[in-house]
Design a protein around this nucleic acid. Structure first.
Length: 930
DNA sequence: GACCTGCTGCGGAATG
């Protein structure tokens, strides 16, 4: 045992029952005690937390420390809770106070830290952001800070949160005017020197990297699901035969998680649970507890259980289809055999031949110790918000000082003063800051964007609390049973698919929908005992694969025989037949140097081994050319196995190859600029720059340029695509045209197609709708754009300001929503094509129409007899006091059910009210009597 | 375009 530790600590170590410190704990003592910044790299379960804490406690015991002396930062709330208890065990016995801070800590506990300031504060990067920007009193305690520990560094460095934290640390250093000691804790990572620079920033301290190479060996098996009939059934059967209690089964999507559970449940498998981000917190805790207590046989999960939450000893890990990166592969395998030196056992369950190849590649890369490099990017939206944060923190702060702070973060080391000034000028123009005598102050539009209270009428305003976080969330609905949340579903899925009385499957159970509250985004459910559950589908299932994986894939194809011992017979036979296709046809094996051009009846496939960003760029170029030449019924695909274009006659890729260099570069930029990914990114970041409303190419160049940079770096690659095309031109990549489809060509076809993005969509929709009423499915088929995009557009077109106004009604015969032009509604009703939808069965009933106007508060209620309305469709025109209403629905004072099942119509013009009320009555009566 | 993650402080009024 090390004799450098304080006697009090030695006593506690004995009390813990530890015979000796773990290797990593021994190794960190010297550098931390000597005041070095230290980056500790070791797998989970090696005692990293104590490796940082013990020497820090030791230093604390020898110094006269004042609160807050230690800041402990970790990315998850669940980890904060775990760690606080763990740290308290030591701290309380040594006379130090610990406190935690995250969004779910009760207000009372949070505010107690002012009265009893803690020596050690455990929080998130966002928690630190709030304190620096906003906590005027508490942040004074930070001036005593001596140590900052950053946990799960590998989780943070790759993201905007990492960039945010790096600036926060520089702000902290400047604010307290002390070069505190920084300690980082990380799982296995690549490029340790870079990661060290990212978290140590401008600190002048010497630093040291402590690495514990995982001595546990990797024991991986690769097997293939034999699917003679139903795929899911075969998968579940296979999984069932492989369970060793307790087993973790990782999937790559929430959908797969739910789907496999359904299948296993059919087979009466016992003690099986589901864990992913759309499961409620309470449910998740239940699942984690059942794992720790050894009750669970199998937990099917997504990445949620890849992170550091303690789940006890796991006997076996199964990966349903290979994960997208080596980093993720190692994290998932690391969940088994938790104790030090145990073996990580895992099995990759493959569905396709290319799954087997990817699995083998992951295995080889992991064995060779090759992992993806961290992705470091100088996000300008993060910089902007930190500038605003500094303006919040100080009454005024000089431009030079701000530039000095931001550029001392390693993420922003190359941010030029010119670029910085340009950014400042933009923020100033938007009045989110103001600049006087080279000093920055908070501008007046800050509180217009970051509101204290959310105003429902203005959809673009952000909540004040969102200012502190760079995680943006999609719109979702909460599913509730007796006031207890059981899950979440994407709003778009709810609008598109879910109605009252439907059954859905979530948290591994089947529920019946009682009602959907579109205002509060709530779905109330009760358990359903039987019936086929409809399964929520969140999004598509294309997963982007790391380029490291691609780089080794070709070698594996040529060399897979070397790995015969880790793959089962089924998988091996499958690979043999994969290879056989090429040998029989006398073709070279797929590699990065060969590209096959293959034709199906309506799609041209280019198969090869190619980095995904290049394939994605080329497929967007093809799509751009195709939409220019043809209608919108074209699509393309992109994957690491090549790309394709559908709906064109000629070989468009050949045309690209014939373009001049300059034209190719232009085409690349233009295609990216047209992609929805770019537009979505621009929208996402615009608030950070103080911009509300529609983006303008001239005015908002700063934002659009940054959006392009972020989109390109994430999804595309301009330079590498250009070089790639050049290589083909020079004959360094050989093109072979063939008849029929190669196995790799089939792999390309298994990826979801990308649809074109259209600029004048409104006009197209108008032309398509003219004279008729259509469902979103029909229209989407007809116009050739995604249903999701179409729905959003149709909803926008309802509003009074729209050029071509739309309305929707319920088709009573099949319960579907139909859309038409407002100008056509009368004609459609009178045509009788939708007779049942506008002709109530019972004319003697009385209802109340509840109308909410657009501008003012409150609502108007109009009582009417169904008969009167049927006889006179203009019945409402004289009675309604406004020309436009925001929401229309019906109620019945004697029957509360009516209000809850009543359809709602939004943004309705006075002229349409009568028809829509008829539609609502027909619908309600069909539910009541039919 | 998968997956995952986070989210006011503080003082003063009212209350027991």
């Amino acid at each position: 045992m090390n004799n450098r530790l304080h006697a009090k600590l030695m006593t506690l170590i004995k009390e813990k029952g530890w015979d000796e410190l773990t290797p990593v704990q021994k190794q960190t003592l010297a550098p931390i005690l000597e005041g070095y910044n230290t980056l500790v790299i070791a797998p989970t379960g090696y005692g990293k937390t104590e490796a940082a804490l013990l020497p820090v406690f030791n230093l604390m015991l020898h110094e006269n420390v004042k609160p807050v002396s230690v800041l402990y930062i970790t990315p998850l709330k669940a980890l904060i809770n775990d760690l606080t208890l763990r740290i308290e065990w030591w701290a309380n016995k040594l006379g130090f106070i610990v406190s935690r801070k995250h969004g779910e800590v009760p207000q009372k506990e949070k505010s107690s830290r002012l009265k009893k300031a803690p020596h050690i504060l455990v929080t998130t990067p966002e928690g630190l952001e709030i304190d620096l920007d906003w906590a005027t009193r508490f942040r004074e305690y930070y001036k005593n800070l001596r140590w900052v520990i950053i946990d799960e560094v590998h989780e943070l460095v790759n993201s905007k949160r990492g960039a945010q934290l790096s600036i926060l640390l520089e702000r902290l250093k400047d604010f307290i005017n002390y070069d505190f000691q920084r300690i980082g804790l990380s799982a296995t990572i690549n490029n340790e020197e870079l990661v060290a620079k990212l978290i140590f920033g401008s600190s002048q301290r010497k630093f040291q990297i402590i690495r514990i190479n995982s001595s546990r060996s990797i024991d991986v098996k690769i097997s293939k699901i034999s699917s003679d009939k139903d795929l899911w059934e075969s998968a579940a059967k296979s999984i069932l035969s492989k369970i060793e209690k307790p087993t973790l089964l990782f999937t790559n999507s929430r959908f797969t998680t739910e789907r496999l559970y359904e299948e296993l449940e059919k087979m009466k498998a016992k003690d099986i649970y589901v864990h992913h981000s759309s499961i409620s917190k309470e449910e998740k805790i239940k699942v984690e507890t059942s794992l720790r207590e050894g009750k669970a046989n199998l937990v099917i999960c997504t990445r949620t259980l890849e992170l550091g939450i303690h789940v006890g000893d796991i006997k076996k890990v199964i990966l349903y289809r290979p994960p997208p990166s080596v980093a993720s592969f190692l994290q998932r395998l690391g969940r088994s055999g938790h104790a030090i030196n145990a073996i990580s056992r895992g099995e990759i369950l493959c569905l396709y031949d290319f799954d087997i190849l990817e699995g083998l590649t992951l295995y080889k890369l992991a064995k060779d110790g090759r992992i993806e490099e961290p992705f470091v990017f100088p996000y300008l939206d993060v910089a902007s918000r930190e500038i605003i944060g500094l303006a919040l923190q100080y009454d005024e702060i000089s431009l030079d000082k701000i530039y000095e702070i931001i550029s001392s973060s390693y993420y922003y080391r190359n941010l030029s003063r010119t670029e910085f000034d340009r950014l400042i000028n933009y923020l100033r123009k938007k009045e989110v800051i103001k600049v006087e005598n080279n000093k920055v102050k908070l501008g007046k539009s800050f509180f217009k964007i970051w509101r204290f209270e959310k105003d429902n009428k203005i959809s673009w305003a952000k909540e004040f609390s969102e200012f502190f976080s760079f995680i943006n969330t999609d719109d979702t609905f909460t599913i509730r049973y007796e006031n207890t949340p059981v899950g979440e579903i994407d709003a778009i899925y709810v609008y598109r698919h879910l109605r009252n009385n439907d059954t859905i499957r979530i948290s591994g159970k089947i529920w019946k929908i009682i009602n959907i509250d579109f205002n509060k985004h709530l779905i109330n459910v009760v358990p359903a005992n039987n019936g086929e559950g409809e399964i929520p589908i969140w999004k598509g299932e294309n997963i982007s694969k790391s380029s490291l994986l691609v780089s080794e894939l070709g070698n594996i194809i040529a060399d897979f025989d070397k790995y015969k011992e880790i793959i089962d017979n089924e998988a091996y036979e499958s690979l043999l037949s994969f290879i056989k296709y090429y040998t029989i046809h006398n073709l070279p094996l797929p590699s990065e140097k060969i590209m096959y051009v293959e034709k199906t009846s309506d799609e041209i496939v280019y198969s090869t081994i190619i980095p995904e960003k290049i394939a994605n760029t080329i497929s967007h170029m093809l799509l751009y050319l195709a939409t220019k030449k043809y209608n919108l019924n074209v699509s393309s695909r992109a994957s690491i196995y090549g790309f394709s274009i559908k709906g064109v006659k000629e070989d468009l890729f050949k045309e690209i190859l014939s373009l001049k260099d300059k034209e190719i570069k232009q085409l690349i930029i233009r295609s990216i600029y047209r992609s929805p990914l770019f537009l979505a990114t621009a929208k996402e970041i615009q608030y950070s720059f103080g911009k509300l409303g529609k983006l303008n190419i001239k005015e908002d160049y700063v934002i659009l340029k940054e959006a392009l940079r972020q989109t390109v770096s994430k999804y595309f690659s301009i330079k590498r695509t250009f070089e790639y095309i050049k290589k083909i031109k020079e004959g360094k990549i050989k093109i072979i045209e063939i008849e029929g489809l190669t196995p790799l060509g089939k792999a390309v076809l298994s990826h979801t197609p990308i649809r074109p993005w259209i600029s004048d969509l409104q006009l197209k929709i108008y032309q398509a709708l003219k004279g008729g009423a259509y469902t979103i499915e029909e229209l989407s088929e007809f116009i050739g754009i995604s249903k999701k995009t179409l729905e959003l557009k149709l909803k926008k077109m309802r509003k009074p300001c729209s050029k071509y106004r739309t309305v929707s009604f319920i088709d009573i015969d099949n319960g579907e929503n139909r859309w038409c032009l407002m100008e056509d509604l009368k004609e459609i009703v009178e045509s009788g094509d939708y007779y049942n939808s506008f002709n109530p069965i019972n004319l003697d009933e009385t209802y109340i129409a509840v109308l909410r106007p657009i501008q003012s508060e409150g609502s108007t209620e109009i009582v009417f007899r169904v008969k009167d309305l049927v006889e006179n469709p203009n019945y409402f025109i004289k009675k309604v006091p406004y020309n436009e209403i925001m929401e229309l629905r019906l109620k019945d004072p004697n029957d509360a059910l009516v209000y809850s099942i009543s359809p709602k119509y939004y943004y309705v013009n006075k002229s349409s009210i009568g028809f829509l009320v008829l539609n609502a009555v027909s619908y309600i009566q069909s539910k009541k009597f039919g």
